[in-house]
Amino acid sequence: MTKVEPLTPYQATDAIPSIPRAGNEPVFHAPWEAHAFAMALALNARGVFAWSEWAETLGDEIRKAQAAGDPDSGDTYYRHWLATLERIVAEKGIATREALAQHRAAWERAADRTPHGTPIELSTEDFHG
């Protein structure tokens, strides 16, 4: 693990200038975006990565998405954040890419069967779809 000083959300928004914000506050358009942001802060606090490593990996994920046709209109920013989170977690050996894909598929199955406005709950069956 990398020895780093954990950052507060305010420090993180300063360290990663591309974070969508209103004033000095990060802006999230959906709860999952805030959750992804919080997971990155938690992993940084545990020393999994330094913000310089995060920024470099995020930049790489954004460039890859742009090369694949992402219009870079700002509304996909946290998709890149999530891709960065998954990549770092896999590269650091915290979870395999296969496990991440399995959980993503289970989440999609659970979301498909959940009525709008109802909390999504994963079940064992979601992992055997």
Rank of each mutant, 00 (worst) to 15 (best):
P119T: 07
A67Q: 09
E25R: 13
F37P: 01
A83W: 04
Y10D: 13
A95T: 03
P26W: 05
G129I: 09
W32P: 00
Q102T: 05
N24W: 12
Q102M: 10
T84N: 04
R109N: 11
V4R: 06
S123T: 14
A34Y: 07
F49R: 01
E86L: 09
R63V: 08
F37C: 02
W54H: 08
A40E: 02
H128L: 12
D14T: 12
F37G: 00
L85W: 01
E91S: 06
D126K: 02
A101Y: 10
A68I: 05
A12H: 02
W51Y: 09
R104W: 07
A110Q: 03
F49H: 00
G23H: 04
I88E: 01
A15C: 07
V27G: 01
I19M: 11
L122H: 08
P119Y: 07
L58G: 00
E53I: 00
K64V: 14
N24R: 15
M1L: 08
M39L: 14
G74W: 03
F37H: 01
A55Q: 12
R46I: 00
A101D: 15
E91C: 01
T96C: 11
Y78Q: 01
A65P: 03
D70A: 11
D112R: 11
A83L: 11
R109S: 09
T84V: 09
M39R: 14
A15E: 08
E33V: 09
L122W: 05
E25W: 11
D112P: 01
A67G: 07
A22N: 11
T2L: 14
H128R: 13
Q66R: 14
G117L: 12
A106S: 03
G129E: 05
H128P: 01
G74T: 07
E33H: 10
S123Y: 06
M39I: 07
I88P: 00
W81M: 08
N44W: 02
R97T: 07
H35W: 13
R21L: 10
A42E: 14
D75V: 04
E25C: 08
Q66T: 15
I19R: 05
P31L: 09
P31D: 13
W107F: 15
S52V: 12
L41Y: 02
S73N: 13
A12V: 11
I120P: 00
Y10I: 07
K64I: 15
E61V: 10
A67T: 11
W107N: 08
E53Y: 06
F49P: 00
A65F: 05
E61Y: 06
S18Y: 03
A40L: 08
F37M: 03
D60G: 11
E53W: 06
R46Q: 15
A30W: 05
R87V: 06
M39W: 10
Y10S: 12
E5L: 09
H128G: 09
G93E: 01
R113S: 10
M1N: 14
A36T: 15
E56K: 15
